[in-house]
Design a protein around this nucleic acid. Sequence first.
DNA 1: AAGGAGTGTGTAATCGATTGACTAGCCCCT
DNA 2: AGGGGCTAGTCAATCGATTACACACTCCTT
Lengths: 319, 319
Amino acid sequence: MRDVAQHAGVSTATVSRVLNGHAAPTQATRTRVLAAIDELGYRPNALARSLRTTSTKTLGLVISDLLNPFFAEIARAVEDEARSHGYCVVIGNADENAEQEATYVRTLLDRRVDGLLLCPATDDPSLVREVVAGGVPLVLLDRTVRGATCPVVRADGADALTQLARRLVGAGHTRIGVIAGPADTSTGRERLDAFAAALGPLLSQDLVVHGDFRQDSGSQAAAVLVERNATALVAMDNLMGLGALAELRRAGLRVPDDVAVAVYDDQPWFPLVDPPVTVIAQPTVEMGRAAARSLLALVNGDQPEDVHLSARLVVRASC
Amino acid sequence: MRDVAQHAGVSTATVSRVLNGHAAPTQATRTRVLAAIDELGYRPNALARSLRTTSTKTLGLVISDLLNPFFAEIARAVEDEARSHGYCVVIGNADENAEQEATYVRTLLDRRVDGLLLCPATDDPSLVREVVAGGVPLVLLDRTVRGATCPVVRADGADALTQLARRLVGAGHTRIGVIAGPADTSTGRERLDAFAAALGPLLSQDLVVHGDFRQDSGSQAAAVLVERNATALVAMDNLMGLGALAELRRAGLRVPDDVAVAVYDDQPWFPLVDPPVTVIAQPTVEMGRAAARSLLALVNGDQPEDVHLSARLVVRASC
DNA sequence: AAGGAGTGTGTAATCGATTGACTAGCCCCT
DNA sequence: AGGGGCTAGTCAATCGATTACACACTCCTT
């Protein structure tokens, strides 16, 4: 910057003013400075700038699992929305692991992100409290924590799950197996609760198996449930659904004749599976965008409302 | 930091030394400082530190499309490897768009990442030159550019494509349609060239359609190729493959009876599709890890070799 | 002609760390 | 007692920007 100033015969203050679009500098100096800038190929040091201004124009996004296309889509939407407002997004991958999540959150805070978007790995509120106590704008995405003290953006699947339950019961299923998410995540619990409520006494405890939102756990759960004579399987997450489908295929069971299947989260390939899979589709893009918008509002000092979107049932041939 | 120093009754220099594990401070002062640190809940400002040390312990990764699970997997692997070496990864999503790619690269450079991993959207070398000229360690991943002047990590699919070609010819196909990647990407060109070489005169020009590595382009290309009486379709990317499969299903064509299908890039769900899809599987995790390792070597002043891995053919029922 | 208003620039403090140069204190030796 | 050799710690410059304040100048007003 000093070089630029020298080159243009002005002080660094003037260069800075030109760079930041202040009113002060004359048209003449302005062009002189700009000429110097691209003659020297100067690029401002964002670290120094941020250090001084205490603003990084960066948002942090800590998601549970980058390999889960649901989160990849969300990340993509967040990034889009943020970029359109001049913000950058740093993505952290927690791998469904509370410890790694905490590490990432702290790293991002150390780097002074202007705000943080978090899909919490568990519903333990301590990390959230830590961030909020540190005064950093925080918005929770997809999942919440106990007694959350910050805005939350999520999609409600209760209606869709109720419809699904009705449909399965209507088709004569009496032994419906559930591959639920972890009991210590809000989505894991809520989806199960909503489905259980819709099913009432028809749902027997031994047909509920908790997975970890990953493919393998879906396979294992499916094996267990089939063993217990379930005639329908509902996987509460697309990766566990994938695992369940793989297991059914491995076991030589036919869908939906032997076992009906439905999965939470739609994916582009679900219609192509044999048979096409009934799903509950979440508005991922809207969730991501809304979360980014809420966070930016918070960063700008507003107090955004929680956002509640809805998932919807998409019936295909698998049940 | 000043507060901590005061609290512990030492100077900021000493605090810094404790923080950075210098030999100097006594065990006594050390514990005093550490006590002060967590009493005050002090966290060092990474911006200031980086400004001073000119090292951010951060790598930049600019990928072509975060929604493409191939790149998501790579990102995940890069992140894993980097983290295990104490580095953070900032992911930028170029959306297969050269301009957005350049913007992201510059943003990352401005933030002084210690090194950059790039999956170039086109084979135009100007951006690469710009980075190299700036003296920032750069490694290309998956794709290369014309006259690349930096290490490259990629997977070679020529053998697998040759096997695939042989197999299709052996099955009696004479009109084999290719859904190729963009001609201005190295992977787009190389995969097509390798396949064309293996097929020889059997490949007619009107059965080669270029897509853009996205689902929709795969559908459109498939429609065109079917129209031209192709009896086999090879999609050079998983998303275009997905699009092609969707189009075939929409058109009511049966795989492999009416049209045989093979796709470049394996995905966990390809075995579940009706019928299971023959693919060319790339060692994504190894690519990501190798790229991160190469970049870290470069950052540490070594001169890593290019890394060439191999893709392999996985035959399933679709052809 | 003096004083005031309004502009355009420059000077220097500042953000929060790191680190080279220096100093104070201690021990030991002659 | 004085000096050499260590150590543990302090001082202050530095990284590269931003910005409050001061200054110089022009142009008006009275």
